[in-house]
Simulated assay, not measured.
Amino acid sequence: MAFENVVYPAFIKQEEGSFGIHFPTLLPDYGWENYLVSGPSKKEATQNAKKALAYLLAGALYDNEDLPNQAPIPANLVTEEMELVFIKTSYSDYAKEIEEHLPGRHWHICFNRDEKSDFRAVAYKNKQGFWDVKVDGDLPIGMEQEKLLQLCPKYPVICTARLRVEAEEAFDSFILRVKEI
């Protein structure tokens, strides 16, 4: 897992006494409204962004994903309070910290991605580099153990997946089958 001298577009925006670094094309779900990191000065915010970006990219590779697209920020969406910047980072600059951090990495998955869902799973990377997805919490009261084991012989492990999207699909499918019982 490595990447060197990758560059992602961002913008700096002053936010209540600090400067926030936003990655709207890298994080389209929340990058326009929420900054990834901030700092008391533009220089410190940019330094913080280099590290946060390295962690984010290393996490994607650790999750068996490709590096995200380096799509430009559309000029027509840039406002006066935004200063466009390009954040350059390298894995080697933060390798030791990242390698200490990643082994504890895990995912939380909500059924149908609804944060209010009663059904959740958690995934941990196994020795083969895949993700073991386990039920996180209890299934519906009254579920017979025998029927549950027919649906999922390795319960509480639901499945093993290479990618997060596969894990999410398998978890949703499992919960739908449980609801049918």
Rank of each mutant, 00 (worst) to 15 (best):
2 A>M: 04
3 F>H: 05
4 E>M: 13
4 E>P: 10
5 N>S: 15
5 N>V: 08
6 V>M: 11
7 V>T: 15
8 Y>M: 06
9 P>S: 14
10 A>R: 05
10 A>D: 02
12 I>F: 05
12 I>Q: 00
13 K>L: 07
14 Q>G: 04
15 E>A: 08
17 G>C: 07
19 F>D: 00
20 G>A: 09
20 G>V: 01
21 I>N: 00
26 L>I: 04
26 L>F: 14
29 D>R: 10
30 Y>C: 08
34 N>C: 15
34 N>E: 13
36 L>C: 03
36 L>E: 00
38 S>K: 07
43 K>S: 12
43 K>C: 08
44 E>T: 13
46 T>F: 13
46 T>E: 09
49 A>G: 04
49 A>Y: 03
51 K>T: 05
53 L>F: 06
53 L>R: 03
54 A>F: 13
54 A>V: 13
55 Y>P: 01
56 L>W: 06
58 A>I: 09
66 D>H: 09
67 L>H: 10
70 Q>W: 05
73 I>F: 01
73 I>K: 04
77 L>P: 02
78 V>G: 03
78 V>L: 07
83 E>K: 15
90 S>Y: 12
90 S>L: 03
92 S>R: 08
93 D>I: 03
93 D>C: 07
94 Y>H: 15
94 Y>G: 03
95 A>Y: 01
96 K>C: 12
101 H>Q: 07
102 L>M: 11
103 P>M: 14
105 R>H: 14
105 R>C: 10
106 H>W: 13
108 H>P: 05
109 I>S: 01
110 C>S: 15
113 R>A: 13
118 D>A: 10
119 F>A: 00
119 F>G: 03
119 F>K: 07
120 R>T: 09
121 A>G: 06
121 A>Q: 00
123 A>L: 14
124 Y>N: 13
124 Y>A: 04
125 K>C: 06
126 N>C: 06
128 Q>W: 06
131 W>E: 01
132 D>E: 10
136 D>P: 04
137 G>I: 08
137 G>Q: 09
138 D>V: 06
144 E>N: 09
144 E>M: 14
145 Q>P: 07
148 L>K: 06
148 L>G: 02
148 L>C: 08
152 C>M: 08
152 C>G: 11
153 P>M: 06
156 P>E: 15
157 V>T: 11
157 V>W: 04
158 I>K: 01
158 I>W: 00
160 T>N: 12
160 T>A: 03
161 A>G: 10
162 R>D: 04
162 R>S: 02
164 R>E: 07
165 V>Q: 14
166 E>P: 01
167 A>H: 01
167 A>N: 04
167 A>R: 02
168 E>V: 11
173 S>N: 11
174 F>Y: 03
175 I>D: 00
176 L>I: 07
176 L>Y: 12
181 I>D: 05
